[in-house]
């Protein structure tokens, strides 16, 4: 238990350092870039300027602003005001978008894991058959076609040609389905490949051959003996997979017009809304860190040989 606590504390420490680094770099950039809140030439709408002046004392020397802004984040979780969206604080924008993006991401990941693992297992067990080749070919497709192209084609097929799903909007399960599938497919493809490779390696292990020789039914052997070993690389892939899903959501939210964090982030980027962009980068960093930590923990639990650093 002590070690676990130690591990978590160390991780938190690293996250704090990383966030601080990101924050500092952002602040420097914000000061350097003209037209942004903390720099000398301010071309902000007066309403925003008023609010920021009240919070961060814009006439103060740079170091003071640095501290104030950081303190604002640490003590109140206050990420300042959006520059382009008047009357909206960054916190509000993030709070609005987060549930949407989070549920989209979760749906996509769950879908990807279920589809990917099943496909991988079937491919491995029926290795060399038509099913295997077909699945792996589709998997390569999933990796080579950018997901926004996939999404567009999907819209073409399933919204216009065969009206199965609505084109945009958010709220019902139907509306989540298509974006989640499009987001999850490339990840599913990669997971399928990983699972297949892991299964093949696991199937050739001695203890599996013994299990088969004992006469255990095929399904039992696969699920109890082969699968656990094969899934390890998939578990460790979940970290990058989350990053991929978060990234992909940027594009898909644009295509499907979903009011999530991603579309706001793109908006912030194209509109040069620096405070909003900063706030979002920090949020995404935290998300990713948390996910990676969970993955590392899961990995250590599954494989007793692994040491937590």
């Amino acid at each position: 238990m002590k070690d676990l606590l130690g591990f978590l504390i160390r991780r938190l420490g690293w996250m704090a350092i990383t966030l601080w680094a990101v924050y500092t770099v952002s602040f420097v950039l914000m000061r350097a870039a003209p037209g942004s809140p903390f720099s000398a030439e301010r071309a902000m709408p007066p309403a925003i300027e008023q609010q920021m002046r009240a919070r961060y004392n814009l006439d103060a020397p740079p170091l003071q602003q640095y501290w104030d802004y950081m303190w604002g984040i640490l003590s109140r979780g206050d990420l300042s005001w959006s520059i382009k969206l008047e009357d909206y604080s960054v916190n509000q924008v993030i709070a609005e978008g987060f549930p949407v993006s989070a549920s989209l991401a979760i749906f996509a990941l769950v879908f990807a894991i279920i589809l990917g693992v099943s496909a991988g297992v079937i491919s491995a067990v029926y290795r060399g058959t038509v099913a295997d080749v077909a699945m792996m070919a589709t998997a390569v497709l999933g990796i080579a076609i950018p997901n926004f192209v996939l999404a567009s084609i999907a819209i073409l097929l399933f919204v216009f040609l065969i009206p199965l799903f609505p084109a945009a909007g958010w709220g019902t399960l139907r509306q989540v389905a298509l974006p989640a599938i499009c987001l999850g497919l490339p990840v599913a493809a990669y997971i399928a490949r990983l699972t297949r490779a892991g299964m093949l390696e696991s199937l050739s292990r001695e203890h599996v051959r013994t299990a088969f020789a004992k006469g255990l039914p095929k399904r039992t052997v696969i699920i109890k003996h082969v699968l656990p070993g094969a899934l390890l690389p998939v578990v460790s892939y979940l970290g990058p997979a989350t990053a991929g899903v978060l990234t992909g959501s940027l594009v898909l939210e644009k295509i499907f017009a979903l009011p999530g964090m991603g579309s706001h982030f793109i908006y912030a980027a194209t509109q040069r809304d620096t405070t909003l962009a900063t706030g979002m980068v920090l949020t995404y960093t935290v998300l990713l860190f948390v996910m990676n930590t969970i993955v590392d923990l899961a990995y250590a639990v599954i494989d007793p040989r692994v040491e937590l650093e």
Binding site: W14, M15, I17, T18, A21, V22, S26, L29, A32, A33, A243, L246, T247, L250, F265, I266, A268, A269, T270, R272, T274, A277, T278, M280, V281, Y284, T285, L287, L288, F289, N292
Partner: peptide, 18 residues
């Protein structure tokens, strides 16, 4: 490791913003 945990895609977009 530290750099890995930063969602770089976002940093890039962020940088491109500036």
């Amino acid at each position: 490791d530290m750099l890995y945990s930063i969602p770089f895609i976002f940093v890039v977009i962020y940088l491109v913003t500036f």
